[in-house]
Protein backbone atom coordinates (compact mmCIF):
# COMPACT_ATOMS: atom_id res chain seq x y z
CA UNK A 1 0.00 0.00 0.00
CA UNK A 2 1.34 3.37 -0.97
CA UNK A 3 -0.52 6.18 0.70
CA UNK A 4 0.17 9.57 -0.74
CA UNK A 5 -0.50 12.59 1.43
CA UNK A 6 1.78 15.19 -0.12
CA UNK A 7 -0.01 18.37 0.92
CA UNK A 8 1.20 20.63 -1.88
CA UNK A 9 0.19 18.13 -4.52
CA UNK A 10 -3.16 17.56 -2.87
CA UNK A 11 -3.89 21.29 -2.66
CA UNK A 12 -3.06 21.71 -6.30
CA UNK A 13 -5.50 18.98 -7.24
CA UNK A 14 -8.07 20.20 -4.74
CA UNK A 15 -8.14 23.54 -6.44
CA UNK A 16 -8.99 21.72 -9.65
CA UNK A 17 -12.00 20.23 -7.82
CA UNK A 18 -10.50 16.80 -7.54
CA UNK A 19 -12.58 14.72 -5.10
CA UNK A 20 -9.73 12.34 -4.38
CA UNK A 21 -7.71 15.28 -3.11
CA UNK A 22 -10.63 16.53 -1.03
CA UNK A 23 -11.01 13.08 0.51
CA UNK A 24 -7.34 12.88 1.45
CA UNK A 25 -7.19 16.38 2.84
CA UNK A 26 -10.12 15.48 5.05
CA UNK A 27 -8.18 12.47 6.27
CA UNK A 28 -5.29 14.75 7.13
CA UNK A 29 -7.26 17.33 9.09
CA UNK A 30 -9.17 14.52 10.76
CA UNK A 31 -6.22 12.45 11.89
CA UNK A 32 -3.38 14.97 12.04
CA UNK A 33 -4.68 18.26 13.43
CA UNK A 34 -1.16 19.66 13.24
CA UNK A 35 -1.38 19.68 9.45
CA UNK A 36 -4.48 21.87 9.48
CA UNK A 37 -2.65 25.19 9.69
CA UNK A 38 -0.49 24.32 6.75
CA UNK A 39 -3.49 23.19 4.71
CA UNK A 40 -5.69 26.17 5.51
CA UNK A 41 -2.90 28.59 4.68
CA UNK A 42 -3.50 27.72 1.07
CA UNK A 43 -6.91 29.34 1.03
CA UNK A 44 -7.88 32.96 1.45
CA UNK A 45 -11.01 34.48 2.85
CA UNK A 46 -12.48 35.29 -0.52
CA UNK A 47 -13.36 31.61 -0.64
CA UNK A 48 -16.95 30.54 -1.02
CA UNK A 49 -19.47 30.64 1.86
CA UNK A 50 -21.61 27.53 2.20
CA UNK A 51 -24.96 27.34 3.90
CA UNK A 52 -24.81 24.82 6.73
CA UNK A 53 -27.78 22.63 7.62
CA UNK A 54 -27.80 20.29 10.61
CA UNK A 55 -30.03 17.23 10.73
CA UNK A 56 -30.62 15.45 14.01
CA UNK A 57 -32.97 12.92 15.58
CA UNK A 58 -33.00 9.60 17.39
CA UNK A 59 -31.44 6.55 15.75
CA UNK A 60 -33.39 5.15 12.83
CA UNK A 61 -35.88 7.99 12.38
CA UNK A 62 -34.88 8.28 8.73
CA UNK A 63 -32.29 11.06 8.82
CA UNK A 64 -30.08 9.60 6.12
CA UNK A 65 -32.99 8.63 3.91
CA UNK A 66 -34.29 12.16 4.20
CA UNK A 67 -30.90 13.70 3.48
CA UNK A 68 -30.77 11.51 0.40
CA UNK A 69 -34.23 12.60 -0.71
CA UNK A 70 -33.68 16.31 -0.32
CA UNK A 71 -30.15 16.30 -1.64
CA UNK A 72 -31.53 14.78 -4.80
CA UNK A 73 -33.76 17.80 -5.27
CA UNK A 74 -31.00 20.27 -4.49
CA UNK A 75 -28.78 18.51 -7.01
CA UNK A 76 -31.50 18.72 -9.63
CA UNK A 77 -31.50 22.45 -9.01
CA UNK A 78 -27.83 22.59 -9.81
CA UNK A 79 -26.58 22.97 -6.25
CA UNK A 80 -23.45 21.35 -4.93
CA UNK A 81 -23.51 19.60 -1.59
CA UNK A 82 -21.05 18.37 0.98
CA UNK A 83 -22.43 15.89 3.48
CA UNK A 84 -20.94 14.95 6.83
CA UNK A 85 -22.57 11.92 8.45
CA UNK A 86 -21.69 11.40 12.05
CA UNK A 87 -22.35 8.01 13.63
CA UNK A 88 -21.78 7.13 17.25
CA UNK A 89 -18.69 5.22 18.22
CA UNK A 90 -19.47 2.17 20.29
CA UNK A 91 -18.56 2.82 23.92
CA UNK A 92 -17.79 -0.90 24.23
CA UNK A 93 -15.50 -1.61 21.33
CA UNK A 94 -14.26 1.87 20.59
CA UNK A 95 -15.02 1.05 16.98
CA UNK A 96 -17.74 2.39 14.78
CA UNK A 97 -19.95 1.03 12.10
CA UNK A 98 -20.85 3.83 9.73
CA UNK A 99 -24.08 2.99 8.00
CA UNK A 100 -25.47 6.28 6.73
CA UNK A 101 -23.89 5.93 3.36
CA UNK A 102 -26.03 2.95 2.46
CA UNK A 103 -29.03 5.27 2.30
CA UNK A 104 -27.26 7.60 -0.07
CA UNK A 105 -26.05 5.27 -2.80
CA UNK A 106 -28.61 6.93 -5.05
CA UNK A 107 -26.85 10.24 -5.08
CA UNK A 108 -23.31 9.18 -4.26
CA UNK A 109 -22.17 9.12 -7.87
CA UNK A 110 -23.41 12.60 -8.73
CA UNK A 111 -20.49 14.89 -9.64
CA UNK A 112 -21.75 17.71 -7.40
CA UNK A 113 -21.93 15.80 -4.18
CA UNK A 114 -19.41 14.60 -1.68
CA UNK A 115 -20.28 12.37 1.27
CA UNK A 116 -18.03 11.70 4.21
CA UNK A 117 -18.77 9.56 7.27
CA UNK A 118 -17.36 10.30 10.66
CA UNK A 119 -17.35 8.42 13.94
CA UNK A 120 -18.31 10.61 16.86
CA UNK A 121 -15.42 9.78 19.16
CA UNK A 122 -11.81 8.97 18.95
CA UNK A 123 -10.66 12.20 17.40
CA UNK A 124 -8.01 14.30 18.96
CA UNK A 125 -9.80 17.42 19.97
CA UNK A 126 -13.27 15.99 19.76
CA UNK A 127 -15.82 15.52 17.09
CA UNK A 128 -16.80 19.15 16.68
CA UNK A 129 -13.21 20.00 15.82
CA UNK A 130 -13.12 17.49 12.98
CA UNK A 131 -16.54 18.55 11.73
CA UNK A 132 -15.63 22.22 11.79
CA UNK A 133 -12.47 21.60 9.83
CA UNK A 134 -14.33 19.57 7.24
CA UNK A 135 -16.91 22.33 6.83
CA UNK A 136 -14.05 24.72 6.09
CA UNK A 137 -12.69 22.34 3.49
CA UNK A 138 -16.11 21.98 1.92
CA UNK A 139 -16.41 25.76 1.79
CA UNK A 140 -13.05 26.03 0.09
CA UNK A 141 -14.15 23.33 -2.33
CA UNK A 142 -17.06 25.54 -3.30
CA UNK A 143 -20.04 23.64 -1.92
CA UNK A 144 -23.33 25.54 -1.93
CA UNK A 145 -24.72 23.52 0.94
CA UNK A 146 -23.21 21.56 3.77
CA UNK A 147 -25.40 19.01 5.50
CA UNK A 148 -24.38 17.54 8.83
CA UNK A 149 -26.24 14.45 10.04
CA UNK A 150 -25.88 13.45 13.67
CA UNK A 151 -27.71 11.16 16.04
CA UNK A 152 -29.47 13.35 18.56
CA UNK A 153 -28.18 11.70 21.66
CA UNK A 154 -25.45 12.89 23.93
CA UNK A 155 -23.78 16.21 24.32
CA UNK A 156 -21.10 15.76 21.71
CA UNK A 157 -23.75 15.48 19.03
CA UNK A 158 -25.57 18.56 20.14
CA UNK A 159 -22.31 20.49 19.99
CA UNK A 160 -22.42 20.25 16.26
CA UNK A 161 -25.42 22.49 16.20
CA UNK A 162 -23.21 25.32 17.13
CA UNK A 163 -22.00 25.00 13.58
CA UNK A 164 -25.27 24.78 11.69
CA UNK A 165 -27.30 27.76 10.51
CA UNK A 166 -30.53 25.81 10.17
CA UNK A 167 -31.15 22.85 12.43
CA UNK A 168 -33.74 20.26 11.41
CA UNK A 169 -35.01 17.91 14.11
CA UNK A 170 -36.60 14.67 12.93
CA UNK A 171 -39.10 12.59 14.84
CA UNK A 172 -41.23 9.59 13.99
CA UNK A 173 -44.62 8.25 15.05
CA UNK A 174 -44.66 5.98 18.10
CA UNK A 175 -41.60 4.99 20.11
CA UNK A 176 -42.75 7.36 22.87
CA UNK A 177 -40.90 10.11 21.10
CA UNK A 178 -43.42 12.64 22.34
CA UNK A 179 -42.08 12.15 25.84
CA UNK A 180 -38.55 12.47 24.63
CA UNK A 181 -39.40 15.75 22.98
CA UNK A 182 -39.95 17.33 26.34
CA UNK A 183 -37.12 15.57 28.10
CA UNK A 184 -34.43 16.30 25.62
CA UNK A 185 -35.21 19.96 25.49
CA UNK A 186 -35.46 19.39 21.81
CA UNK A 187 -37.89 22.25 21.58
CA UNK A 188 -35.00 24.66 21.89
CA UNK A 189 -32.73 23.35 19.17
CA UNK A 190 -34.90 23.02 16.09
CA UNK A 191 -35.49 25.61 13.42
CA UNK A 192 -37.60 23.15 11.47
CA UNK A 193 -39.30 20.04 12.85
CA UNK A 194 -40.04 17.01 10.73
CA UNK A 195 -42.29 14.11 11.57
CA UNK A 196 -40.99 11.47 9.19
CA UNK A 197 -42.52 8.10 8.28
CA UNK A 198 -45.88 9.73 7.85
CA UNK A 199 -47.02 6.48 6.26
CA UNK A 200 -47.03 5.11 9.81
CA UNK A 201 -49.10 7.93 11.28
CA UNK A 202 -47.77 10.78 13.38
CA UNK A 203 -50.55 13.36 13.25
CA UNK A 204 -50.66 13.24 17.04
CA UNK A 205 -47.03 14.20 17.33
CA UNK A 206 -47.55 17.12 14.99
CA UNK A 207 -50.40 18.39 17.13
CA UNK A 208 -48.33 18.00 20.28
CA UNK A 209 -45.36 19.73 18.74
CA UNK A 210 -47.44 22.60 17.45
CA UNK A 211 -48.88 23.13 20.93
CA UNK A 212 -45.50 23.06 22.57
CA UNK A 213 -44.06 25.45 20.05
CA UNK A 214 -46.98 27.82 20.60
CA UNK A 215 -46.42 27.70 24.33
CA UNK A 216 -42.72 28.32 24.14
CA UNK A 217 -42.31 32.07 24.30
CA UNK A 218 -41.51 33.23 20.82
CA UNK A 219 -37.79 33.49 20.67
CA UNK A 220 -36.10 36.79 20.09
CA UNK A 221 -35.30 35.67 16.61
CA UNK A 222 -38.93 36.04 15.62
CA UNK A 223 -38.92 32.65 13.97
CA UNK A 224 -41.64 30.19 14.81
CA UNK A 225 -40.36 26.75 13.86
CA UNK A 226 -42.69 24.97 11.48
CA UNK A 227 -43.60 21.27 11.79
CA UNK A 228 -43.97 19.23 8.65
CA UNK A 229 -44.63 15.62 7.81
CA UNK A 230 -42.59 13.59 5.35
CA UNK A 231 -42.23 10.15 3.92
CA UNK A 232 -38.63 10.08 2.96
CA UNK A 233 -39.01 6.84 1.03
CA UNK A 234 -41.56 8.16 -1.44
CA UNK A 235 -40.34 11.73 -1.16
CA UNK A 236 -43.69 13.09 0.03
CA UNK A 237 -43.27 16.34 1.94
CA UNK A 238 -39.62 16.68 1.03
CA UNK A 239 -40.25 19.67 -1.20
CA UNK A 240 -41.96 21.52 1.60
CA UNK A 241 -39.08 20.65 3.89
CA UNK A 242 -36.73 22.35 1.45
CA UNK A 243 -39.07 25.30 1.27
CA UNK A 244 -39.07 25.66 5.05
CA UNK A 245 -35.32 25.44 5.21
CA UNK A 246 -35.08 28.12 2.53
CA UNK A 247 -37.62 30.23 4.43
CA UNK A 248 -35.49 30.00 7.51
CA UNK A 249 -32.40 30.83 5.52
CA UNK A 250 -34.12 33.88 4.12
CA UNK A 251 -35.31 34.85 7.56
CA UNK A 252 -31.76 34.68 8.87
CA UNK A 253 -30.41 36.67 5.96
CA UNK A 254 -33.03 39.41 6.21
CA UNK A 255 -32.83 39.74 9.96
CA UNK A 256 -29.04 39.76 9.94
CA UNK A 257 -29.22 36.79 12.24
CA UNK A 258 -27.14 34.83 9.78
CA UNK A 259 -24.20 36.99 10.74
CA UNK A 260 -24.86 36.10 14.36
CA UNK A 261 -24.96 32.42 13.51
CA UNK A 262 -21.70 32.67 11.62
CA UNK A 263 -20.13 34.59 14.41
CA UNK A 264 -21.27 31.94 16.80
CA UNK A 265 -19.85 29.22 14.60
CA UNK A 266 -16.40 30.82 14.67
CA UNK A 267 -16.56 31.97 18.26
CA UNK A 268 -17.28 28.43 19.23
CA UNK A 269 -14.27 27.29 17.29
CA UNK A 270 -12.04 29.97 18.72
CA UNK A 271 -13.03 29.05 22.23
CA UNK A 272 -12.28 25.44 21.50
CA UNK A 273 -8.89 26.26 19.97
CA UNK A 274 -8.03 28.42 22.94
CA UNK A 275 -8.84 25.82 25.52
CA UNK A 276 -6.87 23.27 23.61
CA UNK A 277 -3.91 25.68 23.49
CA UNK A 278 -4.17 26.39 27.17
CA UNK A 279 -4.43 22.70 27.79
CA UNK A 280 -1.14 22.20 25.96
CA UNK A 281 0.53 24.98 27.91
CA UNK A 282 -0.64 23.47 31.12
CA UNK A 283 0.63 20.08 30.11
CA UNK A 284 4.07 21.57 29.73
CA UNK A 285 3.93 23.39 33.03
CA UNK A 286 2.34 20.88 35.28
CA UNK A 287 3.68 17.38 35.28
CA UNK A 288 1.76 14.18 35.62
CA UNK A 289 3.58 13.70 38.93
CA UNK A 290 2.09 16.88 40.32
CA UNK A 291 -1.38 15.72 39.43
CA UNK A 292 -0.78 12.27 40.86
CA UNK A 293 0.38 13.80 44.10
CA UNK A 294 -2.89 15.65 44.41
CA UNK A 295 -5.08 12.71 43.62
CA UNK A 296 -3.12 10.52 46.03
CA UNK A 297 -3.53 12.99 48.88
CA UNK A 298 -7.20 13.31 48.07
CA UNK A 299 -7.55 9.58 48.43
CA UNK A 300 -5.63 9.65 51.70
CA UNK A 301 -8.32 11.63 53.43
CA UNK A 302 -7.70 15.07 52.03
CA UNK A 303 -10.70 15.28 49.80
CA UNK A 304 -11.83 18.54 51.31
CA UNK A 305 -8.47 20.07 50.48
CA UNK A 306 -8.92 19.50 46.78
CA UNK A 307 -9.57 23.17 45.97
CA UNK A 308 -6.62 24.31 48.04
CA UNK A 309 -4.21 21.91 46.50
CA UNK A 310 -5.12 22.80 42.94
CA UNK A 311 -4.98 26.45 43.84
CA UNK A 312 -1.51 26.02 45.33
CA UNK A 313 -0.29 24.26 42.28
CA UNK A 314 -1.43 27.19 40.20
CA UNK A 315 0.16 29.78 42.39
CA UNK A 316 3.41 28.84 40.67
CA UNK A 317 1.98 29.13 37.19
CA UNK A 318 2.21 32.52 35.54
CA UNK A 319 0.64 33.29 32.21
CA UNK A 320 2.18 36.18 30.44
CA UNK A 321 1.44 37.71 27.07
CA UNK A 322 4.58 38.13 25.06
CA UNK A 323 5.12 41.77 24.32
CA UNK A 324 5.24 42.45 20.64
CA UNK A 325 8.08 44.75 19.84
Amino acid sequence: MKRNYDIDLLIEKFKKKDKIALARLITLVENNPETTTNIFNNFDSSENDSYIIGITGSPGVGKSTLVNAFSKILLENGKSIGIISVDPTSPFTGGAFLGDRVRMTDISLHPNIFIRSLASRGYKGGISRAVFDITLLYEAFGMDFIIIETVGVGQSEFDIYNLAYTTVVIMVPGYGDSIQIQKAGIIEVGDVYVVNKKDLGGEDIVVQMEMMLDDATITQSGWRAPVIMTNSITGEGVNSLIEKIMDHKEHLELSELLKEKKKHRFAYKIEELLSSKIGKVLESLISEDDLNKISNSVLQGKKFKIYDMVHDLFSNVKFEMKKSD
Binding site: M1, L98, V102
Partner: peptide, 25 residues
Protein backbone atom coordinates in the same frame (compact mmCIF):
# COMPACT_ATOMS: atom_id res chain seq x y z
CA UNK B 1 -11.33 0.50 13.67
CA UNK B 2 -14.21 2.03 11.82
CA UNK B 3 -16.29 0.16 9.32
CA UNK B 4 -18.17 1.90 6.57
CA UNK B 5 -21.00 -0.39 5.68
CA UNK B 6 -21.61 -0.29 1.95
CA UNK B 7 -24.59 -2.62 1.74
CA UNK B 8 -25.50 -3.65 -1.74
CA UNK B 9 -23.56 -1.37 -4.05
CA UNK B 10 -22.49 -1.52 -7.62
CA UNK B 11 -18.86 -1.35 -8.62
CA UNK B 12 -18.84 2.42 -9.23
CA UNK B 13 -20.44 3.08 -5.87
CA UNK B 14 -17.96 0.87 -4.05
CA UNK B 15 -15.03 2.67 -5.60
CA UNK B 16 -16.62 6.06 -5.00
CA UNK B 17 -17.24 5.25 -1.32
CA UNK B 18 -13.71 4.02 -0.81
CA UNK B 19 -12.29 7.17 -2.33
CA UNK B 20 -14.57 9.63 -0.53
CA UNK B 21 -14.14 7.98 2.82
CA UNK B 22 -10.44 7.59 2.10
CA UNK B 23 -10.43 4.23 3.79
CA UNK B 24 -7.37 2.09 4.40
CA UNK B 25 -8.98 -1.17 3.48
Amino acid sequence: MEVIFGGFQNVEQIVESAISEDVDV
